[in-house]
């Protein structure tokens, strides 16, 4: 049942990907090749024929699916490379930036958020305010500010570039600040969600009964509330993955890192539509995958789902 949902989602998104360049204003071929391509008229005619753009839409659609199944996402004239390997190569680096923060942010955010939802004290209120402020700041602005402070003023971190030598120490040196920022950004979102969830569960009868059994304070939170509170938000966290990933794109742009973010940025500068669309497609597939993992995790943690 759930699998069908994902398959349909994927189908719709791939079809959307077919429709966008054809539905948007402007010449379809320009929309498919990008605006950074200057070709002679003869060549234009030839490519047009080659791409099947003079065929009816229905046949174009079938050709499109054949190409998708052959893992062909088109060719970037700007980068002189097929789109898929280009995107995947960049994706590696973005994942290196985004994956640790997704995990750190999930741990930090749910833990601190649970504690903040459990007990209202001046320190948790301050914490909530700090996370709320991070939550409310566009990630790229946060990145700009910290780059300015820690890079420009204090000189603790390099100003530009990702890997100048490519050694592990060098990569860590470059990636540290972006990873910290991403972790805070991801933690702030999980924090707000988890805090609300614990506040709700705190009022449940099983929490009261746990107290009546003699559990002391945070024992109730960690032995009884935590798992119940995290259940409804596993899916929320997975859906949020798209947001966190988008945040990573912007942070890469600010730090001029070698990843999807800068790929998209230069694709935008040169209106390299194939790269833009290919990136969007790959990101969407990743988000769908994250949701599938979340679904599986949910089933593992909730006996009511597992039992069915």
């Amino acid at each position: 049942m759930n699998l069908a949902r994902y398959v349909i989602s994927l189908f719709v998104i791939l079809s959307l990907n077919f429709a966008i360049p054809r539905a948007m204003p402007g010449d379809t071929m320009t929309n498919l090749l990008g605006e950074d391509v200057i070709l002679s008229d003869d060549l234009v005619q030839e490519i047009r024929r080659e791409m099947g753009l003079d065929l009816p839409l229905r046949e174009q659609y079938i050709i499109y699916w054949k190409e998708i199944l052959r893992m062909n996402l088109g060719y970037s004239y700007h980068f002189h490379s097929p789109v898929l390997p280009l995107v995947l190569e960049r994706m590696k680096w973005t994942l290196l930036l985004a994956a640790p923060p997704v995990i750190i942010g999930a741990l930090l955010g749910t833990l601190l958020g649970a504690l903040a939802g459990w007990r209202d004290s001046p320190s948790t209120r301050l914490q909530t305010f700090i996370f709320l402020t991070i939550y409310s700041t566009p990630p790229y602005f946060l990145a700009l500010l910290s780059l300015y402070i820690f890079g420009f003023h204090l000189g603790w971190v390099p100003m530009k570039g990702f890997y100048s030598t490519g050694s592990a120490g060098n990569i860590i040196h470059h990636i540290m600040l972006p990873v910290i920022l991403m972790s805070l950004f991801s933690a702030s979102r999980n924090y707000m969600i988890m805090r609300g969830s614990v506040i709700q569960e705190r009022r449940s009868l099983y929490a009261l009964y746990a107290r009546a059994k003699g559990l002391y304070d945070s024992q109730i939170l960690f032995r009884h509330l935590f798992r119940n509170a995290i259940l409804p938000i596993i899916t929320l966290i997975a859906l949020d993955f798209g947001f966190i990933f988008s945040g990573a794109l912007f942070i890469e742009m600010v730090f001029s890192m070698h990843g999807m973010g800068n790929l998209i940025y230069s694709a935008l500068m040169y209106r390299d539509y194939p790269v833009l669309q290919g990136s969007f497609l790959i990101i969407t597939i990743m988000v769908i995958t994250a949701n599938m993992i979340a679904d599986a995790l949910y089933g593992l943690l909730d006996p009511r789902v597992r039992g069915r």
């Binding site: 989602s9 948007m24 859906l239 798209g242 794109l249 969007f280 990101i283 988000v287 769908i288």
Partner: peptide, 12 residues
Amino acid sequence: LMIPQIPLVIVV
């Protein structure tokens, strides 16, 4: 719900 909104907005 599953389409990442910001990347889609960027493309469109």
